[in-house]
């Protein structure tokens, strides 16, 4: 009798009942070409397992142990209502903590706040390159950080760019953009490279003494927006920054 293609594969995958299996075996005994194919398919399965079974025993990367559900698609909404969402995701907050190596988010906020506190009171030298040379500033900082940066425009939020500077950070060069409002109150946007394994995060907030900080990771960069402002006002600006960087 004729054995179907389906039966040959089902035989390979051990999906046949004994009577059907015997029929296939009888067929294979007389059809060398089909027998060679069945043999090759079995070898394929064995080779696949030999090649990829070792993955089962690899340690699971941290980023798969701490899954953050508030990524890009939902992040704007999260930014708008982050307090409520914070409570909702609290039940698996244990999965969110513990970023490995480099600049961990809490230290990102801390470093940014320190840099803010050091440079924002400067009268004569708040920045290295002023806003008048904005194109040069952005190109220079992009070059030093090794990725294309953008200086967000925050005029609609009432802030104009003062300029920027290059800072040393734990992971190398860091860019700081400084803005001020009509009364001369300043905020700074601190931008640092993050490990490629680090994934995007939602906005997080930290109060570092008098400096309020919203910080997040987006693509190759960690951002921290710092200023001595009310949390709600700073959140408004952080949302604007985020939207401009992700048009």
């Amino acid at each position: 009798m004729k054995v179907t293609e389906h039966e040959l594969h089902a035989y390979v995958d051990e999906g046949l009942a004994p009577p059907a299996r015997r029929e296939v075996e009888a067929h294979l005994a007389e059809h060398a070409e089909d027998a060679a194919r069945v043999q090759a398919y079995r070898e394929q399965n064995a080779a696949l397992r030999a090649a990829f079974d070792p993955v089962l025993n690899e340690p699971i990367p941290d980023r798969l142990r701490r899954i953050d559900t508030t990524r890009r698609s939902t992040r704007i909404a999260v930014a708008a209502g982050w307090l409520a969402v914070g409570a909702a995701v609290g039940w698996f907050a244990h999965a969110l903590v513990g970023v490995r190596g480099g600049l961990t988010p809490p230290s990102l906020a801390r470093q940014a706040a320190i840099a803010h506190a050091v440079y924002s009171p400067e009268i004569r030298h708040p920045v290295e390159v002023g806003a008048a040379e904005q194109e040069h500033l952005v190109n220079w900082l992009s070059k030093r950080l090794g990725a294309k940066l953008k200086a967000p425009l925050l005029a609609a939020e009432g802030f104009e760019l003062v300029g920027g500077r290059l800072l040393p950070g734990p992971g190398g060069a860091v860019a700081q953009f400084m803005y001020q409002d009509a009364r001369g109150k300043r905020l700074t946007l601190y931008v640092t490279r993050v490990e490629s394994a680090q994934r995007d995060t939602a906005f997080r907030f930290s109060q570092e003494d008098r400096v309020a900080v919203f910080y997040w990771i987006d693509g190759p960069f960690g951002y921290a927006l710092s200023g001595e402002f009310a949390k709600s006002q700073l959140l408004e600006v952080a949302t604007a920054v985020y939207k401009q960087l992700n048009p």
């Binding site: 990829f52 079974d53 993955v55 089962l56 025993n57 690899e58 699971i60 798969l64």
Partner: peptide, 8 residues
């Protein structure tokens, strides 16, 4: 299930 998802 993570190890098998990773293998696949």
């Amino acid at each position: 299930h993570i190890p098998r998802l990773r293998r696949y």
